[in-house]
Amino acid sequence: MSAPGTLAMVRLFARQELVLAVRSRWTPIFAVVFAALSLAVGFSGYIVTGGFGMQDFARTAVSLVQLVLLLVPLTALLIGVMALAPERGAAELLFAQPVPRATVLVGKLVGLFEALAAAQLIGFGAAGLTVFSQAGETGAGGFLLMVAGSLALTAIFLGIAALISVGNVGRRARALAIALVVWFVAVVLFDVAILGVATLLRSGHASRLLVTAVIVNPVDAVRTGTLLGIEGSAAFGAASLAFFRITGGSTAAAAYLLVSVGAWLVVPTVLAVRRLERADL
């Protein structure tokens, strides 16, 4: 019997990772929490403005974007690192098999993405079905764009988790600590720091800094792109607004954002693969 081909091996690792993710407590907990929060966000939009019932798709999507930006990078980083930084004995046995290291890593990433995507789709699906039954299909495109943004963030931060993990084989606690720092910087600290620095600069320099910030940080890129698709520039903050003005309109802005997200989807994973191929295990 001959050894399976590359694609079959990627599927083998992906299936294994999917099984492990489903059996671990974290992915099912994430699915339940995500569904509960999505439904809560859908209902709460009207409640805080004195209304009652479910928002339409567009409003629900705008409300959910903040939840996605906060929760999705965190879960992708933590679940990714826990899965991709195995104990030394497990890693040694796995990488001593006649399979290129890139195949192992890509297969695991595919499986993790499938597991996390399924968990999110359960959550978004529950909210989407409820919105559809209560408020009809108006704004469904924006909702789907938000789902796509969430899935893109999942893939991006799984790639970053891979990059963290391959530098910390057998040191899972250290890898988890680094993942938390990365999440805090990307999601919380980055915007605050950029806005703080921008206030100290002259207008032109500040604008350029804010534009760069939107492209450099994948969280900002996804936020800006999703809000742009749902409501145009109406819901933008300072950085996104500066970005929108300087790029000269929706089409150019969308193109820049797509390039940024595309780069973030590819670069961390490629770097992780290259680092893993040179690593001593």
């Binding site: 019997m1 399976p4 083998l12 492990l20 059996r23 497990a90 040694e92 046995l93 098999q97």
Partner: peptide, 28 residues
């Protein structure tokens, strides 16, 4: 190769572990 302190995912059964490596090595 068998490492000094081998480990496997806790949630897999012994058969699932061996079946995974069998598929990986293309063994009958």
């Amino acid at each position: 190769y068998l490492p000094q302190r081998v480990s496997f995912p806790d949630t897999l059964s012994g058969l699932e572990v061996v079946e995974f490596y069998r598929a990986l090595r293309g063994a009958p």
